[in-house]
Write a protein that binds this DNA or RNA. Structure first.
Lengths: 144, 144
DNA sequence: AATAAATAGGACAAAAATGTCCTTTATTGG
DNA sequence: CCAATAAAGGACATTTTTGTCCTATTTATT
């Protein structure tokens, strides 16, 4: 469904949001530790997210990654997925056809549109804040 | 969503079904031509489908791939996806966690379950016959 | 029996995704 | 200013996926 990079990216962003709720700025090392992901690879992904304005980064001692309270509401999963995996999930044909659309549909087109619309809606309506608060309350987990 | 191999696999199987409706047995070359896929790679995928009993293969002159009318109804997309991509789509956690489940869910678990259930139902309820007949009538396409 | 047509399958090649290592840059605090 | 800390980024390594090529096997036809 999502690439590994995207999975790590979402988990990392949720962890950053969670810690930002307490005003804590977090390092790549801490993030990778807490979401159980390869450190250097996670660093690359955090760079992407930072460049895409999904999270905010600060260099130097006391630096790290953070999100302000407003951003947690604004940033939806769709933005993370888009930043890392591009728009394949939204745009592409389920059977890989280049010119598949309502006029010239692949055999799976209609059935696929339904499912993808649901997925798209879910991603576009789920904020980091929502996911972070679930974690805060101890209802959900980011590793194992 | 699906791997390239799986996309080719589904398109190939639908084409085989379509031709089998007319009692025609088809070769790898014809299939690859008609679904616009790499020949040798498509051959490998057809082997997999044949070993998984999704389609039937016949060696030698006049040989090729075919499906009988009963199989077209029995074979659902889920069988093809399973044969080629395994059960990742059904089983795996959306965020890549090993032990994600209802007891210890990732932050996306519940939302993901809904979408995946829909996808699963769609794949399990869509037969090759259904897809092939749409093609036969000229409503859908397998290339471009 | 010989030939030719077709799938089966092994070995290899290329490309993409995943992952690591090391250097550079920015920034803080002493 | 200096040393230490943390992200940024370039280069490289590994693994997986995608794709190709060649040979072996099966079988229909003559």
């Amino acid at each position: 469904m999502f690439s590994k990079a995207c999975e790590y990216g979402i988990r990392a962003a949720v962890y950053v949001a969670l810690q930002s709720l307490d005003g804590r700025r977090v390092s790549v090392n801490e993030i990778a530790e807490e979401i159980d992901s390869p450190i250097a690879f996670t660093a690359k992904i955090l760079q992407q997210l930072s460049r895409s304005k999904v999270i905010h980064s600060v260099k130097g001692p006391t630096g790290g990654f953070e999100l302000d309270r407003t951003e947690m509401d604004t940033v939806k999963l769709s933005m993370i997925v888009h930043a890392i995996d591009g728009d394949d999930i939204y745009v592409g044909c389920g059977l890989g056809l280049k010119e598949c659309n309502a006029n010239q549909p692949c055999p799976l087109h209609d059935k696929f549109v339904d499912i993808r619309t649901d997925l798209k809606n879910m991603l576009e309506n789920t904020s980091l804040y929502e996911l972070a608060t679930g974690l805060e309350v101890g209802l959900t987990y980011l590793k194992r």
